[in-house]
Design a protein around this nucleic acid. Structure first.
Lengths: 313, 313
DNA sequence: CACACAATGAAAGATATTTTCGCTGCGGCC
DNA sequence: GGCCGCAGCGAAAATATCTTTCATTGTGTG
């Protein structure tokens, strides 16, 4: 990081591909990045997410006035959202507005309430998770993803770190990778994770899964792996969190709104699993020659565990 | 602003609403107005109609150069097309581009191929999982769900059985239930599962999670629990499978198509997790008095595990 | 309580857009 | 045939808009 421009956000770790500005994944991006924004910027981001069409009609000055901030802040927000400047954000906004116009109409925007009938709960949860999937897919940096896939496909061994709900995602990834013949291990015990991370070296891959991006128990092993020369990947909802410091490749999951009855673990998990699936399929593609028979074999091996299905009584 | 501009097309006499700029019918407008255009303007109009996305990325000067004309001509063309100036034409162009973009989305109905670019993989997987969610939500029997929730909310203890990918779902459910103060345990070891199932009695709940509905390692403990008087629930993709024989309540998950590169575990897991989330929220609603503080407490307890987020280097 | 530092907006500086204005070439009339 | 008038066009001035710089303000910390 040598570029000492005064106010230059943008650049993630890699720095090669700056970031192809999001076409439609804007609402998601706002939600993802909102926590790392200052108050003023949040106001701007909110206005933009609330009324893309309206904001697209405004100039920097107009939007600054509307949000009670300054032009500088508006531009800063545009930068944070991944655009070179306000002009480009505005263009994207126009695009988004057009899509919304033509596309979907209603949305179950309400939060889940204590007295919601069970049918509503199902509908709302399903809608939310669908939204999370769409947002995550839209916001996923395919360059980073491809890089991570390449690293995985050629890895000598792979360690995956995750605790709590993310631990299950880590295990899911591990299960899948094992199925196609990769050497993978999921660690949820932070001590053992660090102990094992020390063994990693160049050519190995370490993956940290944490929604908050700040979970020490996950960041620590990744740091160790990073410092031992392993290729490190972070799957996180906070692309500016500490975990990304030690990540060669950052895969961002979308953050859906959450609430009392809808803990973060729920939608973050959905996004993480999508990313994990993408990694898996990507690797399976790359190593198809080896993966296909391995998949078939593991399927066969399980067959005898299932009794033949038969009609109920 | 006493506008007595020289070159003012557009506005009729009265000038209330001069012309609502065209949203998407741009190509048509170009064709309609082409005859009344001068040669240079036609070139501009053609460029715009040919490649909206490309032109949206250009400044007046850029588009003027591209078409071998001048800025003035570009602006004149924009006016003729019904926009106040080039800026607005550009915005409309961006919108049009976005619409076209999203319009040709449904190419993702195909199966995932070995040589699919990574971006397609992401799109297809996301689409598939969204589909699974929608199907599962639509097919879920809310009566059965409500019954299962009631049983869970009043249970003395709850055992959850699942192996393989479903094992992770079982753990997910367990984690959640524990958070709101319920006594829950996930079993992936079939022997221990059966051993524990023997302990169950009326008022306890046993939940089996198996996509195929035939996994012996999961059916067996459920059978034992069933025979010992526990309330049993099956979360399965096969409502006619053996597991339902011993289930008081059956919750059906949708089965998406699967293929070589897309094992069943992937989409079945998504549906299962939705069901599990519904169960959790349902129980949390029923036991809100106790669940709310418990949720808050578990959140607090985890807080110290996260380092404060800070800006990157 | 002072210090450091992040956050913010005012205004200067750079670009992009719009307007003005004059040149060019074509057709009709004397 | 030559002159007049006008539509078409683009260069450059004028304006609007966006971007950057920099000083100020507020906020948390030792």
């Amino acid at each position: 990081m040598t570029n000492d421009l005064k106010e230059t956000f943008a650049g993630g770790a890699g720095g090669t591909a700056p970031a192809p500005p999001a076409p439609a994944a804007l609402a998601a991006k706002v939600r993802t990045l909102a926590p790392s924004m200052t108050r003023s910027m949040q106001r701007v981001a909110e206005a933009v997410a609330d009324d893309p069409a309206g904001c697209a009609a405004l100039t920097v000055t107009g939007l600054a006035e509307l949000t009670g901030t300054s032009e500088a802040t508006v531009v800063r927000t545009a930068r944070l959202l991944g655009y070179p400047g306000y002009r480009d954000l505005r263009l994207a906004l126009a695009g988004l507005a057009a899509q919304q116009q033509s596309g979907r109409a209603p949305a179950i925007t309400t939060d889940i309430a204590v007295d919601d009938p069970i049918a509503d709960v199902v509908a709302k949860l399903a809608y939310d998770e669908q939204q999370t999937l769409a947002d995550t897919a839209a916001g996923l940096d395919t360059v980073q993803l491809a890089a991570a896939v390449t690293a995985l496909a050629g890895a000598r061994r792979t360690d995956v770190y995750g605790v709590g709900a993310s631990g299950l995602v880590a295990q899911d990834l591990t299960q899948k990778l094992l199925r196609i013949g990769l050497l993978a291990h999921a660690h949820s015990d932070p001590h053992l994770a660090v102990t094992n991370a020390v063994q990693l070296r160049s050519g190995d891959v370490a993956i940290a899964i944490t929604h908050s991006g700040t979970t020490g128990d996950v960041v620590e092993p990744l740091r160790v792996a990073f410092e031992h020369g392993a290729t490190t990947v972070a799957v996180t909802g906070r692309p500016d969190g500490p975990v990304t410091q030690y990540a060669d490749h950052v895969l961002t999951t979308s953050t859906a709104r959450e609430s009392e009855l809808r803990p973060a673990a729920m939608s973050s998990r959905t996004g993480q699993l999508l990313v994990v699936d993408c990694l898996f399929v990507g690797v399976a593609q790359r190593t198809y020659e080896a993966a296909a028979p391995a998949l078939a074999a593991s399927y066969e091996a399980l067959a005898h565990r299932h009794r033949a299905p038969r009609k109920g009584p």
